[in-house]
Design a protein around this nucleic acid. Structure first.
Lengths: 231, 231
DNA sequence: ATCTTTCGATTGTGATCACAAATATGATGG
DNA sequence: CCATCATATTTGTGATCACAATCGAAAGAT
């Protein structure tokens, strides 16, 4: 049944509260973010339907949504796959993050109350735990939650979907890198961000966020290092 | 057959080269951008299927894709509609455009050759024609083509989908404004942009693009004026 | 041995149908 | 006259099927 290379997707319990399509969507989304689907590997509707044990219909819907979000790519021959990466593309995606995220943080700053700060602290603690445990996957996850918690403080937030699209495109290639945790001990930019928040200093917050993004992607900023990740 | 208020969608010839889903997608997309679908109006699959004379299936797929792109919104009760606008949201969307588009232009600059410049000139001419003819719809269209032609000069462009998502969200409310063309005679920022391109001056190009965006949305930058658009 | 060609298997697309949830409609009671 | 509830209709969801396009592998030619 495996077309080219076998793929393993972690599937969690399906709740009755959500539609099958929603469950398929979140399952495939996480599979993409965890790099469980090799870039370039052709995905077929029926194969995924069998893998997730659902009918082809919810798969079709989820694939179309993920493609619209940039997580997947529909080639001209109608084949769906995780888009492959180039050093230049990687760099452009990171630049787009830096164009959007610090600004989103600054716009959210006026809405961050002490309750939100407490949430941010606890998320930061989880990141430290994951780092100590050497769990690169968890580090990435809680890191995103930290950023999301900042941006969503702004009730008028409109750029989060765009930002998440960038995360989706970068994620499959981030994880492979994070596995080499050696050079991943970054300066704690989150601490800088928190201090900027407490000082109510938008400019410093923007700098901290930008630096955090750059640090998190620095492993791949030289073409040589990135090339290694793409096999 | 009309649920609440009747909607009229301009549908063009369906070619055999594209799938029905693609045709439905582009048809509905244009309907959204032209403001033919009132914000908040509930869209049903079967109604649209009857309207476009296709089966419900392609409608479902197109609606899901458009929702993922921010053109439509799926409410909790599963109803699909054009999201409604608030002054703050409008302002945030414009800010996001300014965060992305000038940067995209600057990154494209090195790739703009004389052939591209000729294309840009012709697009600019079409805008002038449309303005002279008082055709607000055409002005908006060619204006977008002008911007797109700049950004797509960069073969490694990754932000265009994000930018188009912002256009989709703003468009339904831009058109209603452009109808009052009185205050729409903007200084020719496109000429500034072209000169910056010829001078190979990224900073000036960024300023021109940002100013162009601001001018094009200035009509709604004061809450009072925007409120008028939202009825 | 390498490149074409051919043909069977697989795939995406689109239509149709069943069903449960949500909505609208009407009747009933205050 | 308005609010409440029961019923009937409509709606999204998901399954199944038919078909044309596409792909993959084996057979053929050079």
């Amino acid at each position: 049944m495996d077309k080219y290379s076998p793929i393993t997707i972690t599937l969690d319990q399906r709740s009755d509260a959500v539609t099958i399509t929603q469950w398929v969507y979140s399952t495939l989304r996480r599979a993409v973010m965890l790099g469980q689907i090799p870039p370039g590997r052709a995905l077929t509707i029926r194969e995924l339907a069998a893998l997730l044990d659902v009918s082809p219909m919810p798969i079709r819907e989820a694939l179309r949504q993920l493609s619209a979000e940039g997580a997947l790519e529909i080639k001209g021959n109608r084949r769906v796959m995780v888009p492959d990466m180039t050093p230049v593309k990687f760099s452009e995606l990171v630049d787009a993050r830096i164009a959007l995220e610090p600004a989103a943080a600054a716009k959210a700053l006026p809405y961050i109350n002490s309750e939100r700060v407490a949430l941010l602290r606890s998320l930061d603690a989880r990141i430290d735990e994951a780092e100590a445990a050497g769990d690169a996957e968890a580090v990435t996850h809680w890191n995103q939650e930290f950023h999301r918690a900042i941006y969503t403080s702004n009730p008028h937030q409109v750029t989060l979907p765009l930002i998440e699209s960038l995360w989706l495109q970068l994620a499959p290639f981030m994880r492979r890198s994070a596995e080499s945790l050696d050079e991943y001990y970054q300066i704690d930019r989150h601490q800088e961000a928190l201090e900027a928040i407490l000082r109510n200093d938008p400019a410093a917050l923007q700098l901290a966020i930008a630096a955090d993004i750059r640090d998190g992607c620095a492993f791949a900023q030289t073409p040589a290092k990135l090339q290694k990740l793409l096999r």
